[in-house]
Simulated scan of single mutants.
Amino acid sequence: MTVYASVLDMIGDTPLVDVSVLSPNPGVRILAKVESQNPAGSVKDRIALKMVTEAEADGTLTPGKTIIEPSSGNTGIALAMIARIKGYPIKIVMPENVSIERRQMLEVFGAEIILTPGNEGSNGAVRRALELSDQHPEWVFLYQYANEANPRAHYESTGPEIWRDCPEITHFVAGLGTSGTLMGVGTYLKEQNPEIKVLAVEPPLGELVEGLRNLEEGYIPPVYEKWGGPELLDGKRIVRPLESIEWTRRLVTECGVFAGISSGAALAGAIKVAERLDQGTIVFIVADGGWKYLSTGAYTDDLDEVAEKASKIIYF
Score class of each variant (00 low, 15 high):
Tyr224Leu: 12
Arg84Gly: 06
Ile68Asn: 09
Pro70Asp: 03
Ile47Lys: 06
Gly180His: 00
Ala83His: 03
Ile100Leu: 15
Ala259Phe: 01
Leu267Asp: 02
Met51Thr: 01
Ala146His: 00
Gly64His: 07
Glu161Tyr: 09
Lys312Cys: 09
Asp45Tyr: 07
Met105Gly: 05
Glu217Thr: 12
Glu217Ile: 13
Ile313Glu: 04
Gly211His: 08
Ser295Gln: 14
Arg164Leu: 12
Pro26Phe: 11
Ala265Phe: 02
Thr178Val: 06
Gly73Cys: 10
Ala259Trp: 04
Ile285Asn: 10
Thr187Arg: 00
Gly180Ala: 11
Pro24Asn: 13
Gln192Arg: 14
Ile82Ser: 04
Val283Ile: 10
Trp139Glu: 00
Gly228Ala: 01
Ile85Ser: 10
Ser6Glu: 05
Leu8Pro: 05
Gly118Arg: 01
Ala111Pro: 03
Leu189Tyr: 08
Pro39Glu: 10
Met51Ile: 09
Lys309Val: 11
Val28Tyr: 05
Gly73Ile: 00
Ala287Asp: 06
Ser6Tyr: 08
Ile30Pro: 02
Thr281Arg: 12
Val17Tyr: 12
Pro89Glu: 07
Ser72Ala: 14
Glu243Met: 14
Gly159Gln: 01
Leu106Gly: 01
Glu96His: 08
Glu96Tyr: 06
Lys197Asn: 07
Ile313Gln: 11
Ile90Trp: 03
Gly206Lys: 04
Glu156Ala: 07
Val52His: 01
Ala129Arg: 05
His136Glu: 02
Ser263Thr: 03
Lys292Ile: 15
Ala266Gln: 06
Ala259Asp: 01
Asn193His: 00
Tyr299Asn: 09
Arg103Ala: 15
Glu138Val: 08
Ala259Ser: 12
Tyr145Ile: 13
Ala32Phe: 13
Pro167Met: 06
Leu176Ser: 07
Ala40Asp: 13
Gly184Val: 07
Lys50Tyr: 09
Asn123His: 14
Val43Asn: 09
Gly211Tyr: 06
Glu131Gln: 05
Arg128Leu: 07
Trp227Val: 09
Ala149Arg: 07
Met105Arg: 15
Asn147Phe: 03
Asn193Val: 00
Gly124Cys: 07
Val273His: 11
Gly110Val: 09
Gln192Asn: 14
Leu31Arg: 02
Gly124His: 00
Asn147Val: 01
Arg102Leu: 09
Val273Gly: 07
Thr2His: 14
Ala40Glu: 02
Ala48Glu: 09
Ala310His: 13
Glu35His: 10
Asp234Cys: 03
Arg276Ala: 15
Glu54Trp: 00
Met1Ser: 15
Val34Gly: 12
Gly124Trp: 05
Gly206Val: 02
Leu251Arg: 06
Thr66Met: 06
Ala307Arg: 08
Trp163Met: 10
Thr181Asn: 00
Ser263Cys: 02
Gln37Arg: 15
Lys190Gln: 13
Ser244Gln: 01
Lys44Arg: 12
Thr253Gly: 00
Glu305Ile: 14
His171Tyr: 02
Val98Pro: 03
Asn38Asp: 08
Val198Trp: 03
Ser71His: 11
Ala270Trp: 02
Leu294Arg: 08
Thr75Gly: 08
Glu35Lys: 06
Gly260Gln: 00
Gly235Lys: 07
